[in-house]
Design a protein around this nucleic acid. Structure first.
Length: 433
RNA sequence: GGAGGGGUGGCAGAGUGGUCUAAUGCGGCGGUCUUGAAAACCGCUGUGGGUGAAAGCUCACCGGGGGUUCGAAUCCCUCCCCCUCCGCCA
């Protein structure tokens, strides 16, 4: 949520920044300000009436105490009329305020000044590249072929159980998935200083709103209800990302400044309905309805937000370096950024079987956009209450990491070499044919 | 699912229709005293909105929402959450 004061004071600046997203949201600014204006007009009037009423009521109380009942009755008659006007004006204030905030909640965050202005993914500048694409004597197998050959994933039966977009990991595949999760959690907790949390996999609607998933992406979430009780539908949702519960851990709290920075790491499965998305009817692990992910969350002071973002990206990159994977880091341009983000780096890993880079991490600084939505504040040393910056980054998404890993480290005989860093977790140096 | 109890400031805890502008205590901040500290004493101590250059003025907030009333922490309705016991259950 943007600061309404920023819209009042610098409406043209806000419009200009929003326009760089090419989503048309700048058109909403005037409507928000109009509602804000009518709210304040009604508020000024109703507050004056309430001040009068409070004063008279106090007098009535004193008269009653002095047993001057007739005078008290006269005063009552005098104020009775303004009660109706107050009710009416209160209604107008609430109406304007609700309208203003509902619309304001649909406006995305402003891109940071350092973000490249562009229209779509084609305009994303590349920041750096690590390693080079591995060279194969013959055409490398795709992860689908490898999974079939080594029986790592049973695509057909996964679909039989839950429909397309759901995976049944089997044997070495299931063990590799588990090993990767443990490897990632160990890395970020022991090497990078994150505190591990294990969140609920179902969250309340308010948490989805807090991180900016709702209201815009409601159609991409799986809604759950209790049994056949339809009245509970719309209150709880399966996580699209662990960001939803973890970033909200301190929602509605007032944190002492000494407690910052806060760094959390969490594993969770992620559920994405991707309603209407293309390419979900086919086999493969690149685009699925359920995948595992290890997520990194930071809550920091605004002064350190962008330094922390750089560190966050490096923490995620470390994963790919340790696994011997070729990747690149790109900076999402204004037109390609997520709703709540002010600046985002994507990490894309090379998948030889695909001959393409796959997005395995997205690291964003959402500044105070989310903390304002969830009423999370911190108290500075000078006693001022401020909204902290909230950052999130995948560290990393698993299904695609799995793909890149087996495609990169496949051997001519079809077996897969396990990078040294992962061996203790899988307790093997190779997945045999 | 059934029965009962509860939700008040940073914390503890009073208040059941009218100077509540929420007692009192603890904690915290400042001051007096002291070589220094402690003790004692004095003062201050929440959040959000509106207005204003500021000082200030003002409104709202006692779990959320609605109602009764001139006036609600207090009465009524409704929802949420927590605790205790019973039932069911991995």
């Amino acid at each position: 949520m943007l600061d309404i004061k920023l819209l009042r004071e610098k409406p043209d600046f806000v419009r200009e920044r929003l326009a760089t997203r090419h989503a048309g949201d700048e058109a909403k600014v005037s409507a928000v300000l109009a509602l804000d204006e009518s709210r304040r007009a009604a508020l000024a009037e109703v507050e004056q009436l309430k001040a009068t009423r409070n004063a008279v009521s106090r007098e009535i109380g004193m008269l009653m105490g002095q047993k001057k009942l007739a005078e008290a009755e006269a005063k009552k008659a005098e104020t009775r009329a303004i009660g109706d006007r107050i009710t009416e004006l209160d209604r107008l204030v609430t109406e304007a305020e609700t309208g203003r905030d509902t619309l304001l909640a649909t406006i995305p965050n402003l891109p940071h000044a350092s973000v490249a202005v562009g229209r779509d993914a084609a305009d994303n500048p590349e920041i750096r590249v690590h390693g080079t694409a591995p060279v194969f004597a013959s055409k490398p197998l795709t992860h689908i072929e490898l999974c079939d050959k080594l029986k790592l994933v049973d695509f057909a039966r996964g679909t039989k159980l839950s429909g397309s977009g759901f995976l049944l990991y089997t044997g070495w595949g299931a063990r590799l998935e588990r090993a990767l999760i443990n490897f990632l959690l160990e890395l970020h907790t022991t090497e990078h200083g994150y505190r591990e949390v294990a969140p609920p996999y179902i969250v309340g609607e308010h948490c989805m709103f807090g991180v900016g998933q709702f209201p815009k992406f409601k159609d991409q979430a799986y809604a759950v209800q209790e049994g056949m009780d339809g009245s509970t539908l719309g209150k709880l949702y399966l996580l699209p990302t662990a960001e939803a519960p973890v970033a909200n851990i301190h929602r509605e709290e007032l944190l002492p400044a000494q407690q910052l920075p806060i760094q959390y790491v969490a594993y969770s499965p992620c559920f994405r309905a991707e309603a209407g998305a293309a390419g979900l009817g086919t086999r493969g692990m690149i685009r699925v309805h359920q995948f595992d992910k290890v997520e990194l969350i930071k809550i920091v002071t605004p002064e350190t937000g962008y330094d922390e973002l750089e560190k966050l990206v490096l923490n995620a990159e470390k994963v790919l370096q340790l696994l011997g994977l070729h990747y690149r880091v790109i900076n999402l341009c204004t037109g390609d950024m997520g709703f709540a983000s002010a600046k985002t780096y994507d990490i894309e890993v090379w998948a030889p079987g695909q001959g393409a880079y796959l997005e395995v991490s997205s690291c964003s600084n959402c500044e105070d956009y989310q903390s304002r939505r969830m009423h999370l504040r911190y108290k500075t040393e000078t006693g001022e209450n401020r909204f902290p910056h909230i950052l999130n980054g995948s560290g990393t998404a698993l299904a695609r990491l799995f793909v890149a890993l087996i495609e990169t480290h496949q051997q001519p005989d079809g077996s897969i070499l396990i990078p040294e860093a992962l061996q203790p977790f899988l307790r093997a140096d190779r997945i045999p044919v």
